[in-house]
Write a protein that binds this DNA or RNA. Structure first.
Length: 284
DNA sequence: TATATTGTTACACC
DNA sequence: TGGTGTAACAATAT
């Protein structure tokens, strides 16, 4: 389930692996993943050179030499796995494979996606800013210019939202999904059902600190491989042992020894410690 | 066999 | 209008 730390890990790897490579061919076996006419897609992509790989929210931006950029979203089960020429393929290189990019040096990039929710689209590089403006995405949480004041201001715009859902909405803050929203709220000691308007400033500060800290630490360990996630080299992330609540229902809280609970919020499961994250704020 | 899973969006409703 | 809530998408594990 790639969230910001996972997608950013892949971006960094692909940026150094693919920059300068020229695309010799693209094989598409699941056309619905490509959000434009397939013939047009191939015509633009084949023969183009990759300049760099960027990211906005969970969207990878592959900038091409011909003034076009490929936008790739992995949604929940997508993978982009790079293999050098003659490098031995693993089972996950070939299973659920929907697109294969081959480069002139014989290396390949495999885009596979078990649930088939991901996509590839093309946008003129000059129109990227306009494109993302239309998407109305929230700020990049790890950027230095995302401040506590920004966070408080965005919270104010959604006074009735439950904090768990607020954190997961990419139009509020980009890049946070189910795993890290649970972890951020545990770090902050805030119950996932709390309404944003009733949060005290100390709690807002703690959640903000949690966003920065948890995402940065997860990125450092190359993300979490709960079930599907693999990076561009086909490797798992190392953050799962650091998870305090996500996927730990019924297990002991690492802080207080209480039992981790799970709640359904907006069709998603929220994991939390009922003792460390009380529904009613403490009175001091 | 029924249910849970996941990110995002389309859509209904007020 | 916009804010909010829910279903849908798909293939798997349990």
């Amino acid at each position: 389930m790639p969230e910001l730390p996972e997608v950013e890990t892949i971006r960094r790897q692909l940026n150094s692996l693919l920059a300068g490579k020229k695309i010799r061919s693209v094989k598409v076996s699941l056309p619905k993943m490509v959000k434009l006419n397939l013939g047009k897609f191939k015509k633009i992509v084949v023969g183009a050179k990759i300049i760099c790989v960027l990211r906005r929210a969970k969207i990878l931006i592959v900038e091409l030499s011909n003034d076009w950029s490929m936008l790739v979203h992995l949604k929940m089960s997508g993978r982009l796995i790079f293999r050098r020429k003659r490098e031995k393929l693993q089972e996950h290189d070939t299973k659920w494979n929907h697109l294969i990019y081959e480069f002139f040096d014989g290396s390949r990039l495999f885009h596979n996606d078990l649930r088939q929710f991901g996509y590839v689209k093309l946008v003129k590089s000059a129109e990227l800013a306009e494109f993302f403006k239309k998407e109305k995405l929230g700020p990049e949480p790890l950027e230095k210019d995302f401040t506590l004041e920004d966070f408080a201001a965005i919270l104010k715009k959604r006074p009735n939202a439950k904090i768990k859902q607020f954190l997961m909405d990419p139009q509020n803050i980009a890049g946070i999904g189910n795993i890290y929203s649970d972890e951020i709220l545990f770090f902050a000691g805030v119950h996932p059902l709390r309404r944003t308007c009733e949060l005290k400033s100390a709690e807002i500060k703690k959640i903000f600190g949690g966003i920065k800290k948890i995402l940065a630490e997860a990125l450092k360990l190359h993300g979490s491989s709960d079930n599907d996630y693999l990076d561009a080299l086909g490797r798992k992330g190392d953050y799962v042992p650091q998870l305090k609540v996500y996927g730990r229902e019924g297990e002991k809280c690492k802080k207080c020894g209480g039992i981790i609970a799970r709640l359904k919020i907006g069709g998603r499961s929220a994991h939390f410690c009922p003792a460390c994250q009380a529904l009613r704020p403490s009175r001091q």
